[in-house]
Amino acid sequence: MALISARPALVLAYFTYFGVLGIFVPYFSLFLDGRGLSSADIGLLLAIVTASRIVGPTVWALAAERSGKPLWIMRIGALLAAIGWLSSFADYGFWPLLCGFALFSFFWTAILPQLEVSAFAFLNDNTQAYGRIRTAGSVGYIVLVMLGGWLFERYGSEFLPPSALLFLLLLLASLFLLPKVSIHAELTNEHVRFSTLIKNSVLLRFMLAALLLQMSFSPFYGFFTLYSRDLGYSGSQTGLFIGLAVAAEIVAFYFAGNIMRNRSYRLLLGVCYGITVVRWYLLAAFADNVWLLCFSMLLHAGSFAIAHSCAMQFIQQFFPKKLRSRGQALYAGVIFGGGGAIGAYFSGLLWQNGSGASLTFGIAALLALAATLLAVSLPTKTAKH
């Protein structure tokens, strides 16, 4: 397969990667509900599957560092994730689903941290260029969310296994279009130890704030489609709500470089995390009002897109080039793995098949508030290493 230049290939890789998530994240709980699982079972399964993302990123990052071939790590991860996904086609109850999705999730973690590191390497750490290429992921997500709503109404929750598999295979193909990138070229004159950096108080505060924020996202990622259904919204309307959030995310990613230029992390993260408090409060108290629900979706621009862009730049600046792959893996494992697993488990317990929805989102708002207080305690600039 012929290679194409880095930027178009990155656009395609981000589009297909987040296209898979556009099918998986919003509709996975509906799929599990359709297979007869309770909200507690759904929360437990999501927690255990997400927990595989704690160890996975570090394992794959070490493999990428030692081999010097992050592209092959991504390709192997995508292939094995697709094989793990095949388990979703069979309906043999809770435990087979759990094992299959845990394997999928573990191999899936090989992709994004290496893709982020490779993207910054291709783009010479240009945050503005990164933000605009990253919008392709948001476009992929929104397209598949909208399509998923239509497919759910037409075919029910069983649309998910074949649809996600198709985009997994497209993702695998896109990774073979990326030109070679070697991390060996980045391993010169770097003497800072990873074990020293991870004890830094600034990093610890940043990680704890991001962890709490990610925990606050868990009821939205795990149960929003069920919440929307219980409130009487149709599958297409739910797809439109999520699509609105991702449309706001696309705009925010596109302008992220300009927004972040010459502004401190403390300011931007404080504002973004504070916006998230408002967002979850609106879902807790006013989700039956379609206009306020739509407004809460627009807040995704700050609570996710700008916050994520800040986090990526923080990791790139805090860790020296030699250690960025492990830095990305640490962030992905602790935040998306640990925070997602803890949040999913407790969200499942609190949800009570829908009767605890408002309480769950109210607690999410409190978690986001705690994250905001930690964010405003950060210094205005990261240290240089």
Rank of each mutant, 00 (worst) to 15 (best):
K69I: 09
F295K: 10
F176M: 06
M74W: 05
L231V: 02
V117E: 15
G243P: 02
Q316A: 15
M1G: 13
A47N: 12
W60G: 03
D41F: 09
G137C: 09
S118L: 11
Y155F: 13
I54F: 14
A371E: 11
G270F: 10
F18V: 04
L213F: 10
L45A: 04
D230S: 15
W351S: 02
F24H: 04
L3S: 11
S88N: 11
V20T: 13
D125R: 04
A13V: 10
L197H: 08
L378E: 10
P96A: 11
Y17A: 05
I42T: 14
F18M: 03
A247T: 02
A301L: 00
A285D: 07
T188D: 11
I259R: 00
Y281F: 12
L171S: 09
L86A: 12
Y254N: 01
A247S: 06
N353H: 09
S228Y: 05
R134Q: 00
L86M: 11
L147T: 13
K322A: 15
T58Y: 12
A47V: 12
A6K: 08
A287K: 03
A365K: 13
T50K: 07
L165A: 10
L366R: 05
L37K: 08
G22R: 03
A210I: 14
R66P: 02
Y265W: 03
G354H: 09
I42Y: 03
A82V: 04
Q114Y: 08
W291M: 07
R279N: 08
M215I: 06
I83S: 06
L71C: 05
G339K: 02
P70Q: 03
F255D: 00
S355Q: 15
Y14L: 05
W280T: 01
G339P: 03
D41S: 13
F18Q: 04
G222T: 04
T127D: 14
F194Y: 13
T58S: 15
R134A: 00
L144V: 12
V246T: 09
E65N: 13
L268Q: 01
L37E: 13
Q352W: 07
L172N: 03
W280H: 09
Q237M: 14
T382G: 14
F361N: 04
A311C: 15
G333L: 07
T50C: 06
N126I: 11
R261S: 12
D91T: 11
Y27G: 01
Y155G: 04
Y273A: 07
V192Q: 10
A64G: 05
W150H: 10
W95C: 14
F122T: 13
F122R: 05
Y265I: 09
I335Y: 02
A51H: 05
L359N: 08
I54M: 12
G302F: 00
P70S: 05
A47M: 13
Q316T: 15
L147V: 14
L12C: 04
A78H: 03
S264V: 14
G84V: 08
P26G: 10
S5F: 06
F28I: 06
M297D: 00
H300E: 00
A305Y: 00
R266L: 10
F319E: 06
F286L: 12
N289Y: 10
Y227R: 13
